[in-house]
């Protein structure tokens, strides 16, 4: 094999290998985050959520698992485009990846009784 051909051949083999190596270092991390996001359980019960505050990281994919202990509740947060129903006996799953940092108030927007207007929780995105 001529020297010039050897260089071409080596380059053709090495560059893809390097690229593969780079992706193999980064990609699994991301894929792992997307496929196995952090799961946060949130329970709704008149007239509050438990926990009443969660903290997320900007760009982090998380899965919220929402359940109700009594009646149907809502889970509404306009800035993150969340508008879900939490029906007793069912689990509402919601995957989100907030891209904006801030403190957001999530409300129950399904009328659930006399103190419904104060049913809320906080989502902090850092």
């Amino acid at each position: 094999m001529k020297r010039s051909n050897w260089i071409k051949y080596s380059t053709a083999m090495v560059i893809p290998a390097l690229l593969l190596l780079v992706f193999s270092l980064g990609a699994p991390h991301k894929a792992q985050a997307d496929e196995n996001p952090r799961v946060i359980e949130i329970t709704a019960k008149r007239f509050g959520f438990t926990p009443n505050q969660i903290t997320l990281k900007k760009g982090e994919t998380v899965k919220l698992r929402l359940t109700s202990e009594d009646v149907t509740h809502g889970f509404f947060l306009r800035p993150l485009k969340i508008d879900e129903e939490i029906v007793p006996g069912k689990t509402t799953e919601l995957t989100l990846r907030p891209e904006t940092a801030g403190t957001f108030t999530t409300i129950c927007d399904h009328f659930c009784g006399v103190n419904h207007g104060n049913m809320k929780m906080t989502i902090v995105v850092e």
């Binding site: 509404f76 947060l77 306009r78 508008d83 957001f104 108030t105 409300i107 927007d109 207007g117 809320k120």
Partner: peptide, 9 residues
């Protein structure tokens, strides 16, 4: 004021 439920979806 959506966070005060002052809206119609």
């Amino acid at each position: 004021k959506p966070e005060w439920e002052w809206f119609t979806s």
